[in-house]
Design a protein around this nucleic acid. Structure first.
Lengths: 193, 193, 193, 193
DNA sequence: TATGAATGAGGATTCATTCAT
DNA sequence: AATGAATGAATCCTCATTCAT
C-alpha cells in the first residue's frame, strides 16, 4: 500500500468519524464523506469497495487502536489491572466518543451489517476483562455465584454506558470522578471482605 | 381521540415495534409499517404526520408503559426497592426487547431526532433510581464519594446493557441469574459492612 | 339554498381567496382551505363537489362582482366611459388583488382547468371595452388600422398588468397616478387631432 | 462545466420547455422531464438539485437568450429603438411561447419560489425600455406627467399580454399587425404633435 | 490511482377524494 | 348539512453504486 493510498484512507477515516459524530450513522452518506475528505466519491469505492467496506475498515482500525491501549494495562494485582482497564477504556472513549456511540448503537442490533466486526470489538474488550476476573475467581477472591462471562459483559457495558452518559449528559465531571464511580459500583464483586 | 383512531394508532405501534425488532431502525419503511398494520400508507401521515412522528409517539407510549411498571416497585427498605426496580426493568426489556434496542441505539446520539423524547425516558427511569439512592445516602448507608446522579446513570446503563447482552449473546441465562449478576455488581454501593 | 349553506360557502370563498393571495394557486390545498374557513374538509366536497368546483364557483362569484362594477360606468363620451372603465378595473383589482393574480396566471395557460370560466371573465371585460371602442370607430374617431378586438385585448391586458405591477413592484404609487399612466398610454388610440 | 454536462443540461431545458408548453407548470413532473430528455431521473437532481432548481436555471437561461436579442436593438431615434424592442419581444415570445406563459403566470405571484429570478427578467426587459423612454424624456419629447418607470412597466406588460393573447386567442393575426397594434397604443406617449 | 457524471431502485410525503357516522 | 378518519395514486427526492475517462 503506497503512502498516497494510506493517506487517502486515513483522510476518509477521519472524515467518516467526524460525520458520524455530527449526524450519527443514519444520515451518513458517501457524498458527505468524500466531500469532507476532499476526494471524489469514486475514490471511496476505489479504496473500500463499498460504504459498508469503509465503515468496517474504520471499525477494525478502531479495534486495533483500542487493543494496543488495553495491552498496556497490567499489574500483579488483578484489581489494579481492572482499575487500569477501566481507566484505559474511559480515556479511549473520551478520545473517540464517536467510536463509543457507534459501538453502543450497533452492537446489539439484531441483524446488524457490521455485527461480525463489532462482536470482535466486544470480544476484544470482554476477554481482557474476563481474564482478570478469572484470575480473581481462581484465587477465590470473588463471591459465590459470580458468573465470570456475565460479569465481564456487565462491566464492559457499564463502562461504555457511563462513558457516554458522562459525555452527553454530564460533561462537567472529571475523568477521575467517573472512574471512581465505576470502581465503587463494582466493589460489590470484591465480595464481603 | 375516537376509539377508531386509538385502535389505528395501536395497530401502527404494534407493527412498528415488530418491524424494528426484525430489521432494525434502518430498514424501517413506512410502506412496511402500513402493510403490517393493515392500513393505508396515508394513515400513518394522517395520524402521526411523519415517520419520525410515529417513532416519537411510540417512544412516549413506551415511556408510559415502563413508568407504570416502575411505579409498582416500592418497599420500606431502599435496597429492596432497588432490587425490585432492576427486576421490573429486566422484565420490561425482556417483554419489549425492541424498546431496549431503540433506547440504546438512540439515547446517546449527538443531535438525534428523538433526543428530547429519549431524554425523557432516561429521566423517567433514572429519577426513580435516584430517589432510592438518595434515601440510602440520607440514611448514611452509601460509601463516601458516591455521586447519586452518576451512580443512578451507571446503574440504569448497566441494567440496559446487561438486558441486551442477555438477549443477544446469552439467551440461555434465566432472568434470575441476570438479576443476581446485576445485584452482585452493585453490592459495592452498599459500602463496607 | 339555506342561509347556513350560503354562509358556509362564503366562508370558503374568503378562505380560498386569502390562501391564494398568500401562497398562490400552487400550494392551495383543500386541507388548508377547510382549516382557514373553520369547517371540516368534507364540507368542501359537500358544497362544491371538488376543489376545482370550489375555485370555479369562486371565479364566477368574482365575475359577477366585477360585472356589477363595470356596469356602473357609462357616459355620453366614449372616452369618458373608457376612463371610467379603467378606473373601475383598477379599483377592483386593488380590492381583490388575488383575483388579478389568478386571472393573469391562469388565463393564458394552454389547457387550463378553469379556462372556460376564465375566458368568460376575459369576455366580460373585453366586450365592455370593445363596445366603447366600436362607438369611437363608428364615429370615425379612431385612427386607421386600429383593430377593435385586438385593441380591446391590449387595453385589458395593459390595465391588468399595470394593476399587478403597481401592487407588487410599485405600491407607493397612487391609484390616480396609475390611472393617468394608462390613459396617457392609450392616448395613441385617439389619433392625430 | 464539461461538454457532457452542458449537453445534458440543454437536453433537460428543451424537454422541460416542451412539457410546460404541453401541460403547463402544474402537471410538470420530474419523471416526465427525465423521460423526455432521455436521461435518468437522478440526473435532474445531480444537475439541478431539485425540480425548482431546474426551472430556475431554465428561467435564467431564457433571460440570457432574451437579453442577447434585445441587445441587438438600437437606433439613433429612440422611437425607432422602441419599435425594434417591441418587435424583438414579440418575436421572442413567438419563438418561446412557453416562456411568455411562465413569465405571466409566475411574475406577479406573491412570494413565488422563483420570484428572485423572475424579477431579474422583469428588470432586464424594463431597464432597456426605461433607457429609451428616459432618452425621450431628456429630449423633452414625452408629455408632462409621464412617469418613466411606470410607463416602462406598462409597455412591457402590454407587449407580454398582447403576445399571449395573439397566440392563444387570435393566432390568425400576423406579427406585423400585432406590432402595429402595440405601436398605435403607445403613440399616446409621443404627446401632442 | 482517482474522478465525477449518470443511474435507478427505494422511500418519504402530499393531497384530492371517499364514506361511514 | 356536516364531519373527519382513512385512502392510495402520484410525486419528489435520496443515495449507494457504476463506469468511462
Amino acid at each position: 500500500m503506497s503512502a498516497r493510498t494510506e493517506a487517502t484512507k486515513r483522510k476518509l477515516f477521519v472524515a467518516t468519524l467526524a460525520l458520524i459524530g455530527e449526524h450519527g450513522m443514519t444520515g451518513l452518506t458517501v457524498d458527505d464523506i468524500a466531500a469532507r475528505a476532499g476526494v471524489a466519491k469514486g475514490t471511496v469505492y476505489y479504496n473500500f469497495g463499498s460504504k459498508d467496506g469503509l465503515v468496517d475498515a474504520l471499525l477494525r482500525y478502531g479495534v486495533d487502536l483500542l487493543a494496543s491501549r488495553l495491552a498496556s494495562a497490567g499489574d500483579e494485582d488483578p484489581w489494579q489491572t481492572l482499575s487500569q482497564l477501566v481507566d484505559a477504556l474511559l480515556v479511549f472513549f473520551a478520545d473517540y466518543p464517536t467510536f463509543a456511540q457507534l459501538l453502543v448503537s450497533e452492537l446489539w442490533r439484531t441483524p446488524g451489517q457490521w455485527h461480525a466486526t463489532l462482536s470482535l470489538v466486544r470480544d476484544e474488550i470482554t476477554s481482557v476483562i474476563r481474564t482478570e476476573l478469572q484470575r480473581l475467581a481462581d484465587a477465590g477472591r470473588l463471591p459465590d455465584g459470580v458468573q465470570v462471562p456475565t460479569a465481564a459483559a456487565a462491566l464492559f457495558g457499564s463502562v461504555l454506558v457511563v462513558a457516554l452518559d458522562w459525555q452527553v449528559f454530564q460533561p462537567a465531571r472529571t475523568k477521575d470522578e467517573v472512574h471512581e464511580s465505576v470502581m465503587l459500583l463494582i466493589r460489590g464483586l470484591r465480595g464481603t471482605p
